[in-house]
Design a protein around this nucleic acid. Sequence first.
DNA 1: CATGAATGAGGGTTCATTCAT
DNA 2: CATGAATGAACCCTCATTCAT
Lengths: 209, 209, 209, 209
Amino acid sequence: MGIADRREREKSERRRLIMDAANRLFNSKGFSATAMEEIAKESELSPGTIYLYFKNKEELYGSLSVRDLGLLLERLEQINKSEERDPQKRLEALKGVLYSIYEHDPILLLNVFNFQTSNLFKELSEDLATEIRRFSRRALRTIASIFEYGIHQGTFTQRNPIAIADIVWSVFSGIVIWEESKNALDPEKNYIRETLDLAFEIIILGVKK
Amino acid sequence: MGIADRREREKSERRRLIMDAANRLFNSKGFSATAMEEIAKESELSPGTIYLYFKNKEELYGSLSVRDLGLLLERLEQINKSEERDPQKRLEALKGVLYSIYEHDPILLLNVFNFQTSNLFKELSEDLATEIRRFSRRALRTIASIFEYGIHQGTFTQRNPIAIADIVWSVFSGIVIWEESKNALDPEKNYIRETLDLAFEIIILGVKK
Amino acid sequence: MGIADRREREKSERRRLIMDAANRLFNSKGFSATAMEEIAKESELSPGTIYLYFKNKEELYGSLSVRDLGLLLERLEQINKSEERDPQKRLEALKGVLYSIYEHDPILLLNVFNFQTSNLFKELSEDLATEIRRFSRRALRTIASIFEYGIHQGTFTQRNPIAIADIVWSVFSGIVIWEESKNALDPEKNYIRETLDLAFEIIILGVKK
Amino acid sequence: MGIADRREREKSERRRLIMDAANRLFNSKGFSATAMEEIAKESELSPGTIYLYFKNKEELYGSLSVRDLGLLLERLEQINKSEERDPQKRLEALKGVLYSIYEHDPILLLNVFNFQTSNLFKELSEDLATEIRRFSRRALRTIASIFEYGIHQGTFTQRNPIAIADIVWSVFSGIVIWEESKNALDPEKNYIRETLDLAFEIIILGVKK
DNA sequence: CATGAATGAGGGTTCATTCAT
DNA sequence: CATGAATGAACCCTCATTCAT
């Protein structure tokens, strides 16, 4: 490995270091309530260094969204690439992916969500904004293609697959946000798994012929 | 009308004036990005005056949630009080209520949502926090009772009504947030109505016997 | 009693009412930390009314000083007017007066003191400032005349009576402030009486022939 | 001198810079009337920088007291460590110290005083409050030991040394405050030196056998 | 590249004072 | 006279960002 490579790797490692720290803090305290200096401290770097890797606070937050969406996208695309031929099984796999994403980082989707809704978007560089939009669209389209496949096979009823994908995405994100917020108030009871299972049960009943 | 009455009315009008201005600004710029002075300017009052009506910025925001939730709750309870005997029709009424709420203020639910998720809750006076929680719980229970009614009548399949209410609430909020965020990026195309219709169609298929 | 008289009396009663309330609050929280609205509430009047009786916050505070100084002055002048012929006994009477003032309102002198030191003086109307200065000077001169009397009688050593009065005044105020501040830290132990007694003992030894 | 050392020195110089500026302003305008921004301007720094060195306005004020008390304490302790065997000479030295402190900063003691009396104490960090209390107590005890020494030697009359120290402290502070306030009103005439001399004369007569 | 001290604009909030009723 | 709602200037403090080292 050449020196240039090592530099490159160290650089991207440091980027990840910052993003991980930022993710932890943004998740636990929210965007506005997290100070850049805290992120610096958490990542054991100085504030100035953060700005060598990210143009500003918004871009740092946006980069988290990109990373998360990329992760999600990759997993989703594996479903379509799989050998599985039964549409309902593919739907189950979708549930599995979404749930595992939730388990990996409970509010990953909430972040992606909040970010897109929020006005932080406006502060973003065109590049990053475009990337988020593209990833987001691709994720939706990938979900849609699972349904398309089912419709094509004749197992699912004829409906607009993109619209169904929107619904799946919405209900999933909605449940995660909603149950997480209930969780925050009463940490004892966590019904996310059950609610998600039920939601999928209903969706399958609703789309199957 | 006595002087005291008039005073009282003026006072509550002023409160509403502030809340409306705050709502507009919070909606378009978000909580943190909105300065109290802007709210003052928007409501044609002075900063000091805002503080005569609301203890602080958080309480002002929280009061918006309470007002919104109250509005929603009232509409929901009318469904159960209605003469309608057909469970599916009641479900349609629920859709109508949620949609009309959306039309009245597209991000009303988003606000309620974001608020509960956010850390702003911690800054709230106990009174206000309790009220929000109570309203929120009652709204859920009211939705649940629509399903209970259908199960009781034998039209809907036997399932936990509270869980279904959570799903309905989640999917509805999720769609609104999601479509609104797509809206923000591309204001030409608004598919909310269609997506909601489809979502309800699926839910009805999913819960009917 | 005519109507005009009653008006006058009510007016001065209200003045006193406000001053008493202000005194209590200034004493317990200090000048800056006391809000005019608190004084209004404590005196069961409205903020606006306070301003009918006092031009501003500083004048209200200054008026307290005037009242206190007047009270003190009256008591001091009685000593000189008394039948008592023994200079040392007159000195004892002086101690009694100062101590009873302290008992009446522990920080009366502290207030007079702080006020004169503070920059509040600058905000005062010329009238009030002049009055405070005149009272203050007269109080000093009255104390001085007690010593003059003793020197004249040949019981006290020949010294500048005004300077001695300054010292008496300083030591007395100093002790009150100092012991009060120790009091604030450890309310159990109150040595003011003992310290004052000792101070007078020393002074008497110091001035007697 | 290493870089770290220089950093350290610059840092403490900066601290002193701020404290000096703050001292000037607090002295001339009082605590409440002095804005942090003025202190920033006076020390040619930005407001934010002040907060890098002091947690808040109260702590800045408190730090001044600590510095002043430290200075005083050091001087007082030198009296006891000195070769001087004559108690009355030691008393003279005490007068000298107190007077030189006064000359160094005429209202140093007034500040220490006012601070302890004021409610600012409550806002202080435990550390700083403790330090002020400790210094204050030690200063008193050091003064007391001068008298103890005189009593032990048989030159002074048997009296509670701590109480005498309180009196000395009180009369000295009292005179400074009092004469300064007269000074403020009529800057022509400054009798502090004379008054202090007379006060010491009286005290010495009062405590000597 | 990395640092972290310094910046200074901006935010939330208070409160002495006014004035229409 | 009395009121108290309204004002708005001013204050303390934070924190995203910069830049000399």
